Simulated scan of single mutants.
Amino acid sequence: MTSKVVFNNVTRRFDLKNEPFLALDRFSLDIMDGEFVTVVGPSGCGKSTALNIAAGLMQPSEGEVLIDGMPVDGPGPERGVIFQQYALFPWLTVRQNVEFGLRIKGEPAARRREIAERFIDLVGLSDFADSLPKTLSGGMKQRCAIARAYAVDPTILLMDEPFGALDALTRVQLQDQLLETWSRERRTVMFITHDVDEAVYLANRVIIMAARPGRLKEIIDVDLPYPRTEEIRLSPEFMEIRNRVWHAVYHQ
């Protein structure tokens, strides 16, 4: 496998009330092409900062992030970013929201419609394609945001607590749907979460960050087969990995 996203000694400082604050300290990580990694760590350990730098929404103070060997110097269409807040345009329907990035890319109307319908169907929103976001549940809004990110054909998905605001049942359903979509599309995913069970259930590898300043503490391989199922979630093997991750995160 080849490296898709590479963090090379990434450091990020902020000035808070004229005091320097070190959010990331020489953070290095290789994410392989087609890999699903989750990132966990104590609050304030720099998880979102690392993701924002990879997204091109923030510049490092030192070091660099490489995408396919090229330095990141801003946002790019090869990276789809999904945040906890859905950030849908409230005046646009589900279909229009999903088509938005395609419109910016200059895709003709017929092609936009074709691509949008494919991904709307993929996330199970075909019956709501003409609905406005205000009529959708939280889970449906997040599925729409995922469809919009997929529609512009990114090779990388950067996801920052995308299911954090959802109820437990909806969260589990969207985890399964995300894995099903990933298994078909095999995009590279960097997924931030505070939920240890979610981190283990989704990932090929769990990246554990140390308490501030943000550093790489440990990488735990998740040697569990896909597709992931409820039986796997309840298995002794799952619980063993989950306990390793829990101990590494919360006993720092």
Results as ranks from 00 to 15, higher is better:
residue 13 R to W: 15
residue 13 R to C: 04
residue 13 R to H: 15
residue 13 R to T: 12
residue 13 R to I: 11
residue 16 L to K: 13
residue 16 L to A: 12
residue 18 N to C: 01
residue 18 N to Q: 14
residue 19 E to M: 14
residue 19 E to P: 04
residue 20 P to S: 14
residue 21 F to W: 04
residue 22 L to P: 13
residue 22 L to F: 07
residue 23 A to N: 01
residue 24 L to N: 06
residue 24 L to C: 02
residue 25 D to K: 14
residue 25 D to I: 08
residue 25 D to F: 11
residue 25 D to N: 15
residue 26 R to M: 06
residue 26 R to Q: 15
residue 26 R to C: 14
residue 26 R to D: 15
residue 27 F to M: 08
residue 28 S to N: 08
residue 28 S to H: 11
residue 28 S to W: 07
residue 28 S to Y: 10
residue 28 S to G: 13
residue 29 L to Y: 09
residue 29 L to K: 09
residue 30 D to S: 12
residue 30 D to W: 03
residue 30 D to G: 02
residue 30 D to E: 15
residue 31 I to R: 03
residue 32 M to W: 04
residue 32 M to N: 15
residue 33 D to A: 09
residue 33 D to R: 11
residue 34 G to L: 12
residue 34 G to D: 13
residue 35 E to Q: 11
residue 35 E to C: 05
residue 36 F to A: 05
residue 36 F to K: 08
residue 36 F to D: 08
residue 37 V to H: 07
residue 37 V to D: 06
residue 37 V to A: 05
residue 37 V to N: 08
residue 38 T to A: 09
residue 38 T to C: 12
residue 38 T to G: 07
residue 38 T to H: 07
residue 38 T to M: 09
residue 38 T to N: 11
residue 39 V to G: 01
residue 39 V to C: 05
residue 39 V to M: 15
residue 39 V to Q: 08
residue 40 V to Q: 13
residue 41 G to V: 03
residue 41 G to T: 06
residue 41 G to Q: 11
residue 42 P to F: 12
residue 42 P to W: 13
residue 42 P to Q: 07
residue 43 S to V: 10
residue 43 S to E: 07
residue 43 S to Q: 14
residue 43 S to N: 14
residue 45 C to T: 07
residue 46 G to C: 03
residue 47 K to T: 13
residue 47 K to W: 12
residue 47 K to M: 10
residue 48 S to W: 09
residue 48 S to E: 08
residue 49 T to L: 06
residue 51 L to N: 06
residue 52 N to D: 11
residue 52 N to E: 06
residue 53 I to N: 01
residue 54 A to I: 08
residue 54 A to V: 02
residue 54 A to E: 01
residue 54 A to T: 00
residue 55 A to L: 02
residue 56 G to N: 10
residue 56 G to D: 10
residue 56 G to K: 07
residue 57 L to K: 10
residue 57 L to F: 15
residue 57 L to I: 15
residue 57 L to Y: 14
residue 58 M to N: 11
residue 58 M to A: 14
residue 58 M to T: 14
residue 60 P to D: 04
residue 61 S to H: 02
residue 61 S to A: 03
residue 62 E to A: 12
residue 62 E to L: 09
residue 63 G to Q: 10
residue 66 L to S: 07
residue 66 L to V: 02
residue 67 I to R: 01
residue 68 D to C: 01
residue 68 D to Q: 11
residue 69 G to F: 02
residue 69 G to K: 02
residue 69 G to L: 04
residue 70 M to P: 00
residue 71 P to V: 00
residue 71 P to Y: 00
residue 72 V to N: 06
residue 72 V to M: 00
residue 73 D to L: 12
residue 73 D to M: 13
residue 73 D to H: 14
residue 75 P to W: 12
residue 76 G to M: 10
residue 77 P to E: 09
residue 78 E to F: 03
residue 78 E to Y: 03
residue 78 E to A: 05
residue 79 R to V: 03
residue 79 R to A: 00
residue 79 R to Y: 02
residue 80 G to L: 00
residue 81 V to Y: 04
residue 81 V to E: 00
residue 81 V to F: 02
